[in-house]
Design a protein around this nucleic acid. Structure first.
Lengths: 110, 110
DNA sequence: TCCATATTTAAACATTAGTCAAAATATTAA
DNA sequence: TTAATATTTTGACTAATGTTTAAATATGGA
């Protein structure tokens, strides 16, 4: 992963509405949710939601597909994993056993 | 984890210099690196680096400690893990077995 | 004490991001 | 075709972000 795309992805998630949308989609699973569902669930104005969904799309964090008059959004799990991998890459130069997201290195010495 | 602190952490990482600094610290391990080392390694002006380190500190992503005339920064691995956990929380409602960063859910259906 | 090194702070400036209101586009149903 | 629903686009406005230069603070050694 390139640092530029990591920055774009992180910036996309670094906003409360978008992070909420994203987490809703992560929880929803591969089937995703219609834009209107997201707008209702989060009480966001449609125009605002559309703006944020475009950011998430542009960052490659979500997919969208047209379904009749609805547009269904879903999380891009591959992108998510690539991002998490990028953040923890070469953690502690691999010297610590459990250098994974759920237990990435020991706490720093006090 | 609160959404507010997640947003602050993500915003802190959503900038090329800060992301580079952070990854350098993640790789360095608990011992950390002096500010000057980071500035040299990344060719960033000291004032600019200081600004970014403050952001990372404020976001809780790094620790700092004074060591003589140096200030040593190190990654806060607990904060990192909390953030990654927050992003993948309740992924696919738990219906998919391998719902973890290294393999978070199956790809969305095409 | 005085000087050099290490780091932070402050101020000014240009750039970018988010929100809102209004209008535009697309799809379905009557 | 007309009306209603779903979503996106545009433009205007305010606020926040990142860079640079210069000065300030702190530590260690001559």
């Amino acid at each position: 992963m390139e640092i530029t795309s990591a920055v774009v992805a992180l910036a996309a998630l670094a906003q409360e509405t978008r992070l909420s949308v994203y987490r809703m989609l992560v929880e929803a699973g591969p089937d995703g949710l219609a834009a209107g569902r997201l707008a209702d669930g989060l009480s966001v104005a449609p125009a605002s939601l559309s703006f944020h969904l475009k950011e998430l799309l542009h960052a490659g964090l979500v997919h969208s597909r047209q379904d009749g008059r609805y547009v269904i959004y879903s999380a891009n799990y591959e992108a998510m994993n690539a991002l998490l991998g990028y953040l923890t890459e070469n953690c502690c130069r691999g010297t610590t056993a459990a250098c994974l997201p759920t237990a990435c290195c020991e706490p720093a010495n006090p």
